[in-house]
Amino acid sequence: MNQESTQLPAPARHFSVLLSPTPRGARLARLLAAEWLRTWELPYGTAGDAAHIVAELAANAATHGRLAGRDFLLALRVDGGVLRIEVTDTRGDELPRPQAPSTDSASGRGLLLVEALATRWGVTPGPVPRKTVWAELGVPPAELPHSHG
């Protein structure tokens, strides 16, 4: 009798999707990222921080990087001990800058949150008319699933 081992395919080490630059697209970015992170079985703290970063970067793309008819790209990648989050929009002329909002402002703290949660973050311009805002989180090797290599 021939027995075959049944194994589920390992989740991809990368994920990307084009989304509409709307509040709905930003919410979908967070939900899709959270599901992808769940398949990697990353620790709750790392996955939660990453989901918050995705939410902030996607909201910025939908609010400040929006051009009619042009989607934004969400990309997630695990490489070694680093989780990289990238959001690319079509407003390369609008570079994000973290700044303290006024005390009575209900918004404007997103990049401060990204700065606090990420190991490092930045902006890569181009190709015209795009820019990519990225953030990286360290994931200790002991917390990376061994079966997903």
Rank of each mutant, 00 (worst) to 15 (best):
residue 39 T to K: 10
residue 114 V to D: 11
residue 35 E to F: 13
residue 13 R to Y: 04
residue 45 G to W: 08
residue 77 R to F: 01
residue 80 G to Q: 00
residue 55 A to C: 09
residue 4 E to K: 10
residue 113 L to E: 06
residue 57 L to P: 06
residue 3 Q to Y: 11
residue 47 A to T: 12
residue 118 A to P: 04
residue 131 K to N: 06
residue 5 S to Q: 15
residue 109 R to H: 14
residue 142 A to N: 01
residue 3 Q to H: 14
residue 111 L to G: 12
residue 55 A to Y: 07
residue 93 D to P: 00
residue 124 T to P: 03
residue 144 L to W: 06
residue 60 N to W: 01
residue 142 A to Y: 01
residue 99 Q to L: 09
residue 117 L to Q: 08
residue 108 G to I: 03
residue 65 G to L: 02
residue 117 L to C: 04
residue 84 R to Q: 11
residue 81 G to P: 00
residue 9 P to S: 13
residue 103 T to W: 10
residue 11 P to G: 05
residue 5 S to L: 15
residue 20 S to V: 07
residue 19 L to D: 07
residue 138 G to N: 09
residue 38 R to T: 14
residue 126 G to I: 11
residue 77 R to T: 12
residue 26 A to N: 01
residue 75 A to Y: 08
residue 61 A to G: 04
residue 119 T to W: 08
residue 97 R to A: 15
residue 91 R to K: 07
residue 34 A to R: 14
residue 85 I to S: 02
residue 33 A to G: 12
residue 4 E to M: 13
residue 9 P to Y: 07
residue 104 D to F: 05
residue 49 D to E: 13
residue 69 G to E: 09
residue 17 V to I: 12
residue 6 T to D: 11
residue 61 A to L: 05
residue 134 W to Y: 11
residue 109 R to V: 12
residue 61 A to E: 05
residue 19 L to V: 05
residue 30 R to L: 03
residue 25 G to V: 03
residue 141 P to V: 08
residue 38 R to D: 15
residue 86 E to K: 08
residue 66 R to Q: 10
residue 140 P to M: 01
residue 7 Q to A: 15
residue 12 A to H: 10
residue 139 V to K: 03
residue 13 R to V: 05
residue 15 F to A: 09
residue 88 T to G: 02
residue 121 W to H: 11
residue 83 L to D: 02
residue 148 H to N: 08
residue 20 S to P: 10
residue 134 W to G: 04
residue 148 H to L: 10
residue 66 R to V: 00
residue 101 P to T: 05
residue 51 A to C: 05
residue 120 R to P: 01
residue 79 D to G: 06
residue 97 R to L: 14
residue 120 R to Y: 01
residue 81 G to V: 00
residue 77 R to E: 15
residue 139 V to G: 02
residue 132 T to K: 11
residue 13 R to W: 09
residue 33 A to T: 03
residue 37 L to M: 10
